[in-house]
Simulated assay, not measured.
Amino acid sequence: MSVSIVVPTLGRSTLRALLDALGPLPPEVELLVVEDEGRHGPAATRNRGWRSASGDWVVFLDDDVVPAADWYRRLLHDLDVADDVGAVQGRIRVPRPQGRRPTDWERATIGLEDGAWLTADIAYRRKALDEVGGFDERFPRAFREDAELAYRVRRAGWRLVRGGRTVAHPVRPESRWVSLRTQRGNADDALLRRLYGPRWRGLLQIPPGRRGRHALITAAAAGA
């Protein structure tokens, strides 16, 4: 079994913390840091990464996570799976704020802990990626592109499971306009509806959204 680790990045300062946490990897492990120089989005950048990779397994890590000290050891254990398993997701832990309630943005990040098939830390079997063609580059944002890939992999007959390795996902600082930017994901939802019909959320294992709540936040920000 050979392993390649693909990290798409926009050159954020968080990348250094990720690389430091990974530490010195065994020489047989391939690490590919792929910069999104043309701002084509994470789907296209991950595709460039895994298509250049040589491993039987391709592990996608976002550039703002921090792997636990035993991450690689647990990864090897996670990948010791049956031949029909196409992907193994790691576990995400989001640090909570101390002494106060989390903001809406922080709660949204905390929600990643329960998310299904997130590319913050997920390992795909190379055969599965080859079979379905990788990420759909019509999804330009870090939003829905991972769930859509997971659905096509499952539809192709592969099983997706959860592993035991963990990464921390600190909450990135954001401006007051983050809710406005979040609304851009509605275009991706519309594309999924066109592709998979009105039951797309259930098919892709995506929980009901908070569009009404986002609309309230947006209205309040616009009136401030």
Rank of each mutant, 00 (worst) to 15 (best):
H77G: 15
H77P: 03
H77I: 11
L79Y: 02
D80W: 04
D80S: 14
V81C: 14
V81T: 12
A82S: 14
A82D: 15
A82H: 06
A82W: 00
A82M: 06
A82Q: 12
D83K: 05
D83Q: 13
V85I: 15
V85P: 10
V85G: 04
V85N: 07
G86N: 07
A87H: 04
A87T: 10
V88D: 10
G90I: 09
G90K: 00
G90Y: 00
G90Q: 03
R91T: 13
R91F: 08
R91S: 11
I92V: 09
R93N: 06
V94L: 09
V94A: 14
V94N: 12
P95I: 05
P95A: 06
P95F: 02
R96K: 13
R96Y: 08
R96G: 13
R96V: 13
R96S: 14
P97K: 03
P97N: 08
Q98P: 03
Q98F: 09
R100C: 12
R100P: 06
P102R: 07
P102S: 12
T103F: 03
T103D: 13
D104C: 08
D104S: 14
D104G: 08
W105N: 13
W105R: 11
E106Q: 10
E106K: 04
R107I: 05
T109Y: 04
T109C: 12
T109G: 05
T109V: 15
T109K: 01
L112M: 10
L112Q: 08
G115S: 15
G115L: 14
A116F: 15
A116M: 12
A116Q: 10
W117T: 05
W117K: 03
L118P: 01
L118R: 00
A120Q: 14
A120T: 11
A120F: 06
D121Q: 12
D121I: 13
D121P: 06
I122Y: 00
I122L: 11
I122Q: 00
Y124Q: 03
R125D: 02
R126Y: 04
R126C: 02
R126A: 10
R126D: 06
R126H: 09
R126I: 04
K127D: 15
A128T: 14
L129K: 00
L129D: 00
D130K: 06
D130R: 14
D130W: 08
V132T: 12
V132L: 03
V132E: 10
V132D: 05
G133M: 05
G133W: 04
G133Y: 04
G133D: 09
G134A: 11
G134C: 09
F135R: 01
F135K: 01
D136S: 12
E137T: 15
E137N: 05
E137I: 03
E137C: 05
R138F: 07
F139Y: 14
P140R: 02
P140I: 07
P140H: 10
R141K: 10
R141G: 00
A142S: 13
E145W: 03
E145S: 06
E145M: 15
D146F: 03
D146Q: 13
A147I: 07
A147Q: 14
E148Y: 04
L149N: 02
L149W: 01
A150Y: 00
A150M: 07
A150N: 07
A150Q: 04
Y151Q: 12
R152M: 08
R152P: 09
V153T: 13
R154I: 01
R154E: 15
R154V: 01
R154M: 06
R155M: 09
R155E: 15
